[in-house]
Simulated scan of single mutants.
Amino acid sequence: MTDDASRIRLVQTVLDSTDARKLAEFYRSLLGLDYAEWDAPPPADQPDEHGRDWLVLRTPDGAPQLAFQQVTRLRQPDRPDGPVLSPTIAGAPERHIRRKTPASHT
């Protein structure tokens, strides 16, 4: 019998955005990620076809990390008290990392 956890793996997280390129640029800069080769921004004088659809950011070794999907409008979250993205900052003392606690736990 195999362990189901060994067969399941998270490939990437997808974020909806009304400006996929702008959000991708923010996370690329913040996390030091690279665009998938086909998703790099085009020269300034050319239209950004990929930026109006779907973009993928990868780790420096090429593994998928984040994807951004262009949407016309954002919908309300299903779980307002759901999980919170809490990246770890390498080398930062634990006391300097802010954590958001859901309202029901304050």
Rank of each mutant, 00 (worst) to 15 (best):
Q76A: 14
P64L: 02
L30H: 06
R95L: 09
A40K: 14
S86T: 15
W54I: 02
E49D: 12
A24Q: 02
R98L: 15
R75V: 13
T18M: 11
E94I: 15
R52Q: 12
A90P: 01
D45A: 09
P41S: 09
A67P: 00
R95F: 14
I8C: 11
P60R: 08
T59S: 06
V11F: 06
T13Y: 10
G82V: 05
V84L: 09
D34W: 03
D61S: 12
I97T: 15
S86H: 08
Q46S: 10
I89M: 11
Y35P: 01
G62Q: 04
S29M: 07
D34Y: 04
T18K: 03
V84D: 10
G82W: 06
Q46Y: 03
H96I: 06
S6K: 15
E25G: 10
L74S: 05
D34R: 10
R75E: 14
G51C: 03
L74C: 06
L33M: 10
D81I: 08
G82I: 04
L10A: 10
K22G: 08
A63L: 09
Q69A: 09
G32E: 06
L23M: 13
Q46P: 03
S6N: 15
S86L: 14
R58T: 12
S86G: 10
A67N: 02
L31Q: 05
Q65R: 13
Y27V: 00
E37L: 04
S86C: 11
P87G: 08
S6T: 15
W54D: 04
K22S: 12
Q70K: 09
A90S: 13
A92Q: 13
S6H: 12
E25V: 05
V11P: 00
A36V: 02
P64C: 00
P43I: 02
A92M: 14
E25K: 05
V14A: 08
P47L: 06
A24D: 03
G91W: 06
K22C: 07
R99D: 04
Y27E: 03
P93H: 11
H50G: 08
R79K: 12
W54S: 00
S29T: 15
Q12I: 06
T72P: 05
A92L: 15
Q69D: 05
F26Q: 04
R73W: 07
G91A: 07
A5M: 12
H96A: 12
R58L: 05
P83L: 13
P60H: 03
D45R: 04
L74N: 08
F68M: 04
R9C: 11
L23R: 04
Q69G: 03
D45P: 01
T18Q: 11
I89G: 08
W54Y: 12
L57Q: 01
H96S: 15
L85Q: 14
A40E: 13
L66W: 01
